[in-house]
Nucleic acid binder design. Structure first.
Length: 419
RNA sequence: GUGGGUGUAGCUCAAUGGUAGAGCGCUGGACUGUGGCUCCAGUUGCUGCGGGUUCGAUCCCCGUCAUCCACCCCA
């Protein structure tokens, strides 16, 4: 084979594409009724905005970005995530001057140079939503409720909402200090990765999967016990609102978000059907990022859904059924074929999906094709029919057959003809 | 970046140290103007690539590439 898609990127074909479309259509409808408007963000951005927002401690910025100089020597990066662009957009267009909160969603491909595995590609799609300008817990609750409704509407029941508060600039430093003190004593006993994490991002030690590390970190200080009063109140209010709405969630004090900009509320939606990469969506508050980008001090919260993972779950729970044509017109002979074209256009102008044979072949093979592509009706036009100005119709699902005027193919769909 | 599994027909997979087969699919026929069921025929391969061992390698060995899974990181 001469050419193939690059490592970690893939073509999305029928029938899978119909699951993608269903997911996107439903998500847009759900976002819309919560007042989120779509924004279309560029796929390339100045490298700075990702370095600034995501933080240099994660591998995303350190080694996973598709970064290149453009022809003028500027450093350009294929976006590895959407929030940075959304914040840049919010600040650039002065959207803080519009009534708060401003709520947006976006969708599109993201790029990270990683080793592919189950649920992870180098080009992957996210749908994300962001709400700017409210620090009130009611919007945290609403975002989570919206996401919950989306999964419910997609028929995905076996997902788990995990929730945590990771504090703010007031309380996190003290907690971090506390935590590093705890790890420091027996640092040599932890796995090599955790020893690295100790200096780069000690919070990450909390979700190490190595058995020994899990054992060692028992009794580690919990972030929940170190929240400042404001964070505590905010988190409690969020929890009470979710409980009021009967949203099922799990508190996970070890839930740490990967990106540096998160504050307070952090959440993930996970599924056991996804392999090691089990987070199908994740998000949280990022109250400092807008200011960091040169905008006014503006609290914000958002999430992103991993679309490949979402579609994988949909695929698990239902067959990707391809839609099928309503009518296949079989024609015998040149003149019949010309008439078939006319009838097809007439049907299509009324929105009816109509297929033609595009070849001169036997009736048998035409009907076989109609059956294979799962058409509902076959219209049959031959020399006899042409002379009489009629056509045969056959319902390929029921086997019913009849005859009607060639000038009014729509009467086939009239219930009177179907008994 | 690290570790492991797998590379044979469009797809799913067999096989043997003597240069390949099945099922599905696709095309056609039996049925000359009626699909699905059945039967028949046809169809696609540098057995990923390069090297080594051997009289001979799809099989054994080395390398390489691709792919899958896991780690790291993360949606």
């Amino acid at each position: 084979m001469k050419y193939s898609a690059l490592k970690g990127v893939e073509d999305i074909l029928p029938p899978d594409i119909f699951l993608w479309q269903r997911a996107e259509t439903i998500a847009k409808a759900v976002f819309h009724r919560y007042g989120f408007s779509e924004i279309r963000l560029p796929i390339i951005e100045s490298t700075d905005i990702f370095v600034r927002s995501i933080g240099e401690s994660t591998d995303i910025v350190g080694k996973e970005m598709y970064t290149f100089p453009d022809k003028a020597g500027r450093s350009i990066t294929l976006r590895p995530e959407g929030t940075a662009s959304a914040v840049r957009c919010y600040v650039e267009h002065g959207l803080n001057n519009l009534p708060s909160p401003q709520k947006f969603f976006y969708t599109g491909p993201m790029f990270r140079y990683e080793r592919p595995q189950k649920g992870r590609q180098r080009q992957f799609y996210q749908m994300g939503a962001e709400a700017f300008g409210s620090s009130h817990p009611s919007i945290d609750a609403e975002i989570i409720i919206m996401l919950n409704n989306l999964f419910a509407e997609l028929g995905l029941k076996e997902v788990r909402f995990e929730l945590n508060s990771i504090g703010c600039e007031t309380c996190r430093p003290a907690y971090k200090a506390n935590l590093t003190d705890f790890f420091k004593n027996r640092l040599d006993d932890y796995c090599p990765d955790c020893q690295k994490r100790f200096s780069t991002n000690p919070l990450r030690i909390l979700d190490c999967k190595v058995e020994r590390c899990i054992e060692l970190r028992k009794g580690a200080p919990s972030v929940t016990d170190h929240l400042c009063d404001e964070c505590r109140t905010h988190f409690d209010s969020l929890l009470s609102r979710l409980n009021l709405m009967n949203i099922k969630f799990t508190l996970n004090p070890n839930l740490v978000r990967g990106l540096d900009y998160y504050t307070r509320t952090a959440f993930e939606v996970t599924s056991e059907h996804l392999g090691a990469q089990k987070a199908v969506a994740g998000g949280g508050r990022y109250d400092r990022l807008v200011k960091e980008f040169g905008g006014p001090d503006t609290p914000a919260i958002g999430f992103a859904i991993g679309m490949e993972r979402l579609v994988a779950l949909l695929k698990d729970s239902e067959d990707a059924a391809a839609p099928a044509p309503k009518v296949f017109i079989t024609a015998l002979g040149e003149e019949a074929d010309r008439q078939a074209g006319l009838i097809a256009e007439s049907l299509r102008s009324k929105g009816i999906w109509t297929e033609l044979n595009y070849a001169a072949s036997s009736l048998k093979s035409q009907l076989r094709k109609a059956d294979r592509i799962d058409a509902e009706y076959a219209f049959i036009i031959g020399e006899n029919e042409l002379k009489a100005g009629v056509m045969q119709w056959k319902n390929l699902k029921t086997g019913d057959q009849g005859q009607c005027s060639i000038n009014n193919p729509f009467e086939v769909f009239n219930p009177r003809n179907q008994d």
